[in-house]
Simulated assay, not measured.
Amino acid sequence: MKMTMPEQNTAEATTQTAAAAKPKISAHGVSVFYGDKKAIDDVSIDVHTRYVTAFIGPSGCGKSTFLRSLNRMNDTIASARVEGEILLDGEDIYRSRMDVVQLRARVGMVFQKPNPFPKSIYENIAYGPRIHGLASSKAEMDRIVEESLQRAGLWEEVKDRLADSGTALSGGQQQRLCIARAIAVDPEVILMDEPCSALDPIATARIEELIDELRGRYAIVIVTHSMQQAARVSQRTAFFHMGKMVEYGKTSDIFTNPREERTKDYITGRYG
């Protein structure tokens, strides 16, 4: 029997709600070692689409190390070893048959320091889609480049100089270019490792606005030293201390009514 339009809309909304309720990434008992040193100890957390999840904590607490484990960036460090289980849509990303190149297309990363390729603005965006065969024609590639720059809030600023070098942009523009580059391969998750730490307040505000716009489409995880930034941009917050995840929950609860004394001490500035 064919559904009416209201019934169809209700069914679609139910499906979307169910998808949002199911974790995009689930980490279970994850520990990360650098040689004999344990940097992360037994962390379990769920990351959901349509949420920004912030990792906060003092320097050296392991939050960036854990972030890098979510798309196997720690594989690039010879002494690094990961124990436990990290699932992306229920699939173990550390299984031997996992295509790490495809994994990093699905789980993109934006680093602390903007790192555009020494190529044109256009080629910075086109590089990933070309590698992954996402465009079958020049017109299709043009569309991907334009859409990615538009989503990153950069199109109007650069549309007349796509042939210019990406390294010639300002710091804030370079970071938005890197975000555009990450989303050009149509990822499902975006990891951001202190994306605003090298930017001025105006550029930081632009990136924060962008994060808020993007969260409706992706699962976003951000490492930040700024508790104010975590409070502004995230819906979920995890507090790390000395390699352990001390507390995880709604951002409003973490900042106004933390369960753990260590969280309260950090939030109130007693240490960190």
Rank of each mutant, 00 (worst) to 15 (best):
H225G: 09
E208C: 09
D186S: 14
L191H: 06
E188I: 00
I179F: 02
L191Y: 07
E209D: 15
A198E: 12
P187Q: 05
I211Y: 03
E208G: 06
M192C: 13
I183E: 03
P195T: 05
T237Q: 12
Q235A: 14
Q228F: 12
E208K: 04
V233H: 03
Q229W: 13
I222S: 01
M227C: 05
R181H: 09
I222A: 01
D186P: 00
E208W: 11
E188K: 12
M192R: 04
P187D: 06
G216M: 11
R236Q: 15
A198V: 02
E213S: 14
M227N: 13
D193A: 09
H225E: 07
A203N: 08
I190A: 01
E209S: 14
V223M: 01
L214R: 01
A182Y: 11
I207P: 01
L191N: 03
R181P: 04
Q235I: 01
E213L: 11
E209H: 12
R217A: 13
D186N: 14
R215T: 14
V221W: 12
I220Q: 09
Y218G: 06
Y218A: 08
A231I: 01
D212V: 03
A205E: 15
R181F: 08
S234M: 13
V221N: 07
E194G: 10
A184V: 02
V233P: 02
D212K: 15
M192A: 06
R217G: 10
C178F: 04
C178A: 03
A231K: 15
E209L: 09
L210R: 00
P187R: 02
A231R: 15
E209Q: 14
E188L: 03
T204M: 10
P195I: 04
L191C: 02
L199S: 07
A219Q: 12
T204D: 10
S197G: 05
I183C: 01
D212F: 03
E194T: 08
S234K: 12
D193F: 09
R217N: 14
I207F: 05
A180T: 03
P187E: 06
D186H: 14
V223D: 00
V221A: 05
S226W: 08
I183M: 02
C196K: 04
T237N: 11
I183T: 05
R215V: 12
T224R: 05
I190S: 02
E213W: 00
R232H: 15
T237H: 12
A219L: 09
T224A: 10
C196D: 09
C196S: 14
A230H: 11
R236T: 11
L199D: 07
L191G: 00
I183R: 00
A205V: 05
L210M: 09
V223P: 00
I190M: 07
R181W: 11
Y218N: 08
I202D: 05
A184P: 00
C178H: 03
L210D: 03
T224D: 06
I211E: 07
R206C: 04
A205T: 09
D186F: 14
T204H: 08
E188N: 08
I179A: 02
I211D: 09
I211G: 05
M192Q: 05
A230G: 11
I183P: 00
A184C: 02
S226N: 14
I179D: 02
L199C: 08
E194N: 10
T237D: 12
A198Y: 08
D212H: 13
Q228H: 14
A203T: 01
A219I: 10
S226K: 11
I222R: 00
